[in-house]
């Protein structure tokens, strides 16, 4: 079984967002890039499965669509335990554009399970995984919070409206994963960092594709008004304010 993990290269989640002067784009200067947190959990689970079922899981491949500046993120994934990496040389674009690039790069490749994080921490799109599944004509399961392999059967728990569900599906399948799929993201070991030096990283040319949407501009979110402090001895005032001023109770 071959697992593909789709990785998005995003600014560190503690980054303060800065904009260009015309507010039409984000100013990425000085930003520290990381693996999108959900993708990192997906990768961690893939590695755990390979360690638990060495005979079953042959290979873990990581893929991203982006410029050469996304390669350190791919190499970190290799250091964490992925076997090889693909970069589609296609920076920018919306979710449809990115999904089309990924689909183009992996079409015909024998990936049985494709893992995608449920969203990326930059554009919060929640779209690439589902789109990729549709483009490849694979089944997909979304909001997956646990994943186990048994032979060719893929056992997952997914969140559904109002609860959760254990389901079985079979490869090939795209799993769109969320919190719970793995607990602590993998930290690369020295050995991992060393072996990543010699693991293959393939660069694939971009496919012709057009996006379905574009960014028009940005705004800083509205400032919160100052916090009204309430005396801990006077909780009735809080209740009163929530009832009459904020009108939420």
């Amino acid at each position: 079984m071959n697992i593909l993990v789709c990785i998005s290269n995003v600014p560190d989640t503690t980054t303060r967002i800065k904009y260009s002067a015309d507010m039409k784009s984000v100013d990425y200067s000085g930003v520290q890039w990381i693996i999108n947190p959900w993708d990192e959990l997906a990768l961690t689970r893939a590695i755990e499965l390979k360690e638990a079922h060495p005979a079953l899981v042959q290979k873990i491949t990581v893929i991203t669509a982006g410029g050469a500046d996304a390669e350190p993120t791919l190499r970190k994934a290799l250091a964490c335990g992925a076997d090889d990496a693909i970069r589609v040389d296609a920076p920018g674009g919306d979710s449809l554009f990115t999904a089309t690039q990924l689909a183009h790069a992996v079409k015909g490749e024998p990936f049985d399970v494709i893992l995608c994080g449920i969203e990326s921490s930059d554009y919060n799109g929640s779209a690439v995984g589902g789109m990729l599944a549709e483009l490849l004509d694979y089944n997909s399961v979304s909001a997956v919070s646990s994943l186990n392999l048994e032979g060719n059967s893929v056992k997952v728990t997914r969140e559904i409206d109002g609860g959760k569900q254990s389901i079985e599906t079979s490869a090939p399948v795209v799993l769109i994963v969320q919190k719970g799929i793995a607990i602590n993201p993998r930290i690369p070991s020295m050995r991992g960092i060393m072996t990543a030096r010699t693991k293959p990283l393939k660069v694939v040319a971009a496919a012709a594709a057009s996006p379905g949407s574009k960014v028009v501009g940005y705004q800083a979110p509205p400032q919160k008004s100052a916090c009204k402090m309430i005396d801990p001895e006077n909780i009735d005032e809080l209740v009163h304010l929530l009832h009459t001023e904020a009108r939420v109770i």
Binding site: D94, G125, G130, S140, D161, I176, S213
Partner: peptide, 24 residues
Amino acid sequence: AHNVTGKALAPRVAVRLNAGLVSA
């Protein structure tokens, strides 16, 4: 709706309709 079901279905629907998708 941008809930677990919408997140699961909207991207697939968008591809089928060759449509651009903006979520949330």
